[in-house]
Write a protein that binds this DNA or RNA. Structure first.
Lengths: 168, 168
DNA sequence: GACAGTGATGTCATAAGCTGACATCACTGT
DNA sequence: ACAGTGATGTCAGCTTATGACATCACTGTC
C-alpha cells in the first residue's frame, strides 16, 4: 500500500482550476480545494505559496521556452526580432502544452479578477526583465535591450489577448 | 469640542509610511498603523481598501496629470510624442507634490516587497491603458495607440528608476 | 432652541489566508 | 531489523478583511 495517492500537486491544481471556474476565484476557499483533492489546507500551502500561485504553476516552463527562443535567434537578428523570437516560442509552447481551449479558460479567469491580474503582470514583468538580460548577453546594450523586451512583450500581450478571445 | 481629530486619512497614510520604513511592510500590522494614528483597525479599512493601497493614495492625481498631459500635447505631435508629454507631466507633478526625497523613499519601499510591486504594476498598466484610450480619442488607431502608450511607459519607468536611485 | 437626520468613528463577531511546531508512518538504504 | 527521510496530517495562532450595529458631535430646519 502506498501511503498517499500520487500527484498531490497536480490534483490540487486541477481541483483549484475546476472550483475557480465553477464558483469564481473569490468564492472558492483553499479548504474546498484541498478537500476536493483529498488533502488538507496545510498541504495546499506546502505546494503553492498562495491561493493565486496555483494558476501560474506552469509559468517556469514558459519562461524557459521564452529565453531559449531569444538565445537561439539568428545571430544576425536585431534586438527586437530576437525578443520577438522568444515570445513566438512561448506561443508555440502554450499551444502545445495546454491547448488553446485551456489557455483561454485560464486567461478568462485571470482577466476577471484583480488579484490574479496583479500576479499575471508581475510574471510578465519578470519575463521582460529576463529577456532584456538575455539580449544583453547577446551584446545588446541598455537601454535598447530593455526597450526591445518591453515592446516585444506589449505586442505579445496584444496578440495573446486576441488569441484567447477567439478561442471559443 | 470636535468629536475627532481631523485628517484621519492623512494621519493613517503618515503612520503607515513611517512604520513601513521603520519595520518593513510585512512586519507592520494594520492594528499598529491605526494605533499610531489614534484610530481603530476598522477605520483604516474604511479609508483604504487594503494594507497596500495606503501607499498609492495619490495615484489618482498622477493619472489626471498624465491624461491631461497627453490631451494637451500639440495637435501635430505624433502618438509617441503625445504619450511622452503625458509622462513628462507626471514627472513634474511628482517633483512638485511629493519631492524627490519622499518619492524615493516610497519607491524603495515598493521595490523591496513583491506584493507592493504587484500593486504598482497594475496601477501602471491602468495608466498605459488610459493613455492608449486618450490617444485613440486624438484619432490614433489601434494598435498604434496601445504600442505608443506602452513604449512611453517603458521609457518613463526606466527614467523614473534612475531618478529615484539618484535621490540620495 | 428643540429635534430629526447624517456621517465618521467605535465595537464586536467572524470568515479566510497563511505560518510555525510537532506528530505520523510508508518507504528507502544499509 | 532498524535508523533516517520526506510527504502529509493536526493543531494552535496571527493577520487581513468585512458585515452589522452602536455612538454622538455636527448640521439644518421648524
Amino acid at each position: 500500500m502506498t501511503r498517499w495517492e500520487p500527484n498531490a500537486r497536480a490534483r490540487l491544481a486541477q481541483a483549484a482550476m475546476d472550483l475557480y471556474r465553477e464558483q469564481g476565484f473569490n468564492q472558492t476557499t483553499v479548504a474546498e480545494i484541498a478537500e476536493r483533492a483529498g488533502l488538507t489546507e496545510r498541504t495546499f500551502f506546502r505546494h503553492y505559496a498562495d491561493k493565486r500561485e496555483v494558476l501560474f504553476g506552469g509559468a517556469d516552463d514558459m519562461k524557459d521556452a521564452l529565453l531559449a527562443g531569444v538565445a537561439n535567434a539568428a545571430e544576425s537578428a536585431d534586438p527586437l526580432t530576437a525578443a520577438a523570437a522568444g515570445f513566438l516560442a512561448v506561443g508555440a509552447a502554450l499551444e502545445e502544452q495546454r491547448g488553446r481551449e485551456l489557455a483561454g479558460q485560464r486567461q478568462r479567469l485571470i482577466a476577471a479578477n484583480a488579484e490574479l491580474r496583479e500576479r499575471e503582470l508581475i510574471k510578465l514583468a519578470s519575463w521582460a526583465s529576463s529577456v532584456a538580460e538575455t539580449l544583453h548577453s547577446r551584446g545588446v546594450e541598455e537601454p535598447v535591450a530593455t526597450l526591445a523586451a518591453e515592446v516585444a512583450l506589449a505586442v505579445f500581450r496584444t496578440s495573446f489577448e486576441y488569441w484567447t478571445e477567439t478561442a471559443d
